[in-house]
Design a protein around this nucleic acid. Structure first.
Lengths: 226, 226
DNA sequence: ATGTTTCATTCAGGGCACTTTAATGCGGAG
DNA sequence: CTCCGCATTAAAGTGCCCTGAATGAAACAT
């Protein structure tokens, strides 16, 4: 899951980003409105965290422009003030939820997860593919009931594959969802991580779930075809 | 002892939270009903402080739903009005006690302590993880029956870990609970205290309870995973 | 006051796990 | 056979984590 955080206060940005990364989100940080706007429109995110007290371009304006391009992106607004008039303004500008500073990280996390859950088509937090279980809340993975320890990137990749089970995902799509913005050029990083995953998920089982589709990408299937 | 405060007025929330923290309670704050409900059901608390004048989901509704999940959690309701009809309504909804605004902090504290004491009689105040015992009333810690002397911060950290045994806690969450300051820059204070704890709790025992989850945080487990 | 002890915190080093790059091996398609 | 795409492995790079020591702060005793 990728999150864009637009926040000019460095300390707050660091704090929030660090906390979210520990929850295995891929977090990009923009320090002002214009770059936030650019990143939001250039890359694809699952959620936008937007501070409204920005220097230069006003946060509300940024939000409106992003909405023009992407109406479905969940947006959680961070704001310093707490007036009723502003609340209405936020929602009219296109915020899905808001949080006033100072806030506790625990509450931010709860709201972030709530928005992501709402956006997801399937509401169950556990993804199932054959005897593979991916619990998105506790971020635990089991195969045939037995726990599997995954690193951060391995987990993100598996979650992305499992949440699109049956569909073939190209390397480009995978990189876009699992890795953050600092990625360019030709790399076989996806191949390498697919191998890591296979060695942990598929290697001990006769039924291989992760399938290679030559010339296209990878997919995870309950019933691999011959 | 962990307290969840659900209160939409920032100033009141800050005031109460600060006062309770000075009394060495670990306080989480939620600013509205839905996130309060979410936090109450995700984490474990010893007491719930609930403002009934909430935007969105009504406080009474929140209370009912929490009661459905956790019948024993002591709940102290904060309310603005004081009609007899409402009193009855509160108790019917599942409040254990209530307090009308404006209130003095001293009175709040008295009631909080009373509720916790009452709850302590039927619920054990001792947290157990394998052969580790954390007595939250006397703040004494034992491992394999033998007493361990901890400093204040060491104890707070251990209690937070033990009260969420099995769950992985990120550094961000730990800092927020054990140290009051949010938004502190990069610090490895948590790492250092985990080390202190290990040297007192784990070092003499073959079974290590405190586990590092790289890139994520720490957790305390009765049965460490392979 | 001054010194002593204990606790809280910061800092820097080194090590290791994870991430990423890059090179090589393998196999099917034409 | 040769090319192309994928698999595999090794190894470099990076960042995170652990540790020990030093500093600062606070409580206590002299």
């Amino acid at each position: 899951m990728r999150i864009l955080l637009v926040e000019d206060e460095k300390k707050v940005a660091e704090f929030v980003a660090r906390g979210l990364r520990a929850e295995r989100f891929a977090v990009d940080v923009a320090n002002d409105g214009p770059s936030g706007l650019e990143m939001a429109t250039t890359y694809s995110y699952d959620l936008l965290l937007l501070d409204l007290m920005l220097p230069g371009l006003s946060g509300t304006e940024v939000l409106k422009r992003i909405r023009r391009q992407n109406a479905k992106l969940p947006v959680l607004v961070l704001t310093a003030r707490d007036g009723t008039a502003e609340k209405v303004e936020h929602f009219e500008a296109g915020a899905d939820d808001y949080l006033t500073k100072p806030f506790a990280f625990a509450e931010l996390l709860v709201r972030v997860k709530a928005l992501l859950r709402r956006g997801a088509t399937d509401r169950s937090s556990v993804l199932r593919v054959a005897d593979l279980e991916v619990d998105r809340l506790s971020q635990q993975v089991r195969r045939a009931g037995k726990r599997i320890e995954l690193t951060s990137k391995e987990y993100s990749l598996l979650e992305y594959l499992a949440s699109n089970a049956g569909r073939v995902l190209s390397r480009t799509m995978i990189i876009e969802h699992v890795w953050d913005e600092s990625f360019e050029g030709l790399t076989n990083i996806v191949d390498v991580y697919v191998r890591h995953l296979r060695s942990k998920v598929d290697v001990m089982h006769p039924v291989k779930l992760i399938r290679t589709v030559r010339g296209v990408g990878y997919s995870i299937n309950a019933e691999p075809e011959p």
